[in-house]
């Protein structure tokens, strides 16, 4: 039986473990993927998932938490955690010219090249403002519709479109400059 989001939320507010388990099963893979794409680190991504759901529980305990748009709510918690994570490890960005060492199971050169390109994009994303970064990630990497992105950021759709445009323009500059930019959090 497929529960609706409202059913799950209702169960979650009364700390029904079945409902909470269902929420975890439904949304944790996406949160992990999202964190992995931005952080590129399995351990950090797992930490992000754990912290996201822990904060969700604490909000429920305080009688708060979302009334609707549960997925958007969880992604916003995850996004905030990632932004904090950038801030914690911000000072020295990796140089994109540096030859990255592939992990043991990614020996082929193509994998190394992909990894390098991915790191370039991640570094460029880190140089965006948090809102720009979240819009670009949700819209173009996760493939969300503008309405869903607007719900996640709590902004009107028009503002989301404007953020997209500015973010893409900034990314083009960043990626064409060789990625020597510091992250947005490091510059603050």
């Amino acid at each position: 039986m497929v529960s609706t989001e409202q059913d799950l939320l209702s169960g979650a507010r009364s700390f029904d473990l079945d409902a909470l388990g269902a929420i975890y099963d439904r949304y944790s893979p996406g949160i992990y993927r999202y964190a992995m794409r931005l952080l590129g680190d399995e351990t950090l991504a797992e930490d992000c998932v754990a912290e996201t759901f822990s904060r969700f529980l604490k909000a429920l305990r305080a009688g708060q938490g979302p009334q609707d748009h549960l997925q958007a709510y969880l992604y916003r918690i995850a996004h905030n955690w990632i932004t904090d994570s950038y801030r914690r490890q911000a000072p020295l960005p990796e140089s994109l010219d540096e030859t990255l060492r592939a992990s043991d199971y990614q020996q082929p050169e193509t994998q190394a090249a992909l990894h390098l390109e991915q790191q370039q994009v991640r570094l460029a994303l880190r140089a965006l403002t948090p809102d720009q970064r979240q819009v670009v990630t949700l819209r173009f990497i996760e493939g969300w519709e503008n309405n869903a992105v607007a719900a996640a950021l709590g902004k009107p759709v028009g503002a989301i479109k404007a953020l997209q445009h500015r973010a893409l323009s900034a990314l083009r500059k960043l990626l064409s400059s060789g990625g020597q930019e510091q992250s947005y959090e490091a510059k603050k």
């Binding site: 993927r33 794409r37 399995e42 991504a45 390109e117 991915q118 370039q120 990497i141 990626l175």
Partner: peptide, 11 residues
């Protein structure tokens, strides 16, 4: 370039 990050990540 952004789509490069869309690669499947195995948890």
């Amino acid at each position: 370039k952004l789509l490069l990050l869309r690669t499947a990540s195995h948890r």
